[in-house]
Design a binder for these strands. Sequence first.
DNA 1: CTTTGTGCAAAGGCTTTGCATGCTT
DNA 2: AAGCATGCAAAGCCTTTGCACAAAG
Lengths: 138, 138
Amino acid sequence: MSGTDQTDVPARRPTRQRSAVLAALEERDGFCSAQDLHAQLRARGDAVGLATVYRALQALVEDAQVDVLRGGDGEAVYRRCSTVHHHHLVCRSCGRTVEVADAPVERWAARVAAEHGFAEVEHQVEVFGICADCATAR
Amino acid sequence: MSGTDQTDVPARRPTRQRSAVLAALEERDGFCSAQDLHAQLRARGDAVGLATVYRALQALVEDAQVDVLRGGDGEAVYRRCSTVHHHHLVCRSCGRTVEVADAPVERWAARVAAEHGFAEVEHQVEVFGICADCATAR
DNA sequence: CTTTGTGCAAAGGCTTTGCATGCTT
DNA sequence: AAGCATGCAAAGCCTTTGCACAAAG
């Protein structure tokens, strides 16, 4: 049906709000919730409705430009996809996050999935702990 | 302060509801949401209030008898802690879960955390994919 | 001009909390 | 008898959805 089309995804229409959300997400360069982004945008002067933030984030997730993940309290947190796949080490106390390379985990996940005949594998790995600063501050 | 006490946790009072929740959780032997447990208990004839299920689960989590984890839709899922730590391989299509040993991941998480000075490490790993049955059924 | 995106407000689902009552200690 | 646990219902929070209007193609 779609003869010469190169993509299957319906064309997204570039708008001020859409790019504002993506820009805000890149500034943060880490995890942030939809509500955080909304507050950040309003503070900056970019008026964007909360529902629009959610819709923009959903679109970005579908287009694989943004990853979504559930925080410990059930709030969804989003992060700009980086070209290289990696995971996060999150401090339970101060919230600081460190990106960690994951070649071993990547291989482990692929192997385990293959052993059980699973395809289209994705994995979700987050490591939580108390960072050195917070540990000494106790 | 607590002289001869062996534990710091306030004593839990054993009740019919409390044990019913734990029993239901053990029967399932996998993930289930609070709402699932509540439905299961009512179906079985054990009348337990939904709020009580939530409170019992919170207590069990605090006492480290149960692990909690957020599902993709934000619903919290609980599982009885097993003596051996393991993770799950979940089929996105039929929901079947396979327990997988995780020695390599365990070591990886510990090493990565140590390299960055993190203490009291916990990790959360779930692998998602399409199982063989669902793949051939397509 | 047609289609898609936006804003506002209402609805929806899961979870937590307040308060009176019952059960455990 | 004192105190935690329970039940019910109401409130809370994050997120999604309906509808009219504005903007993009």
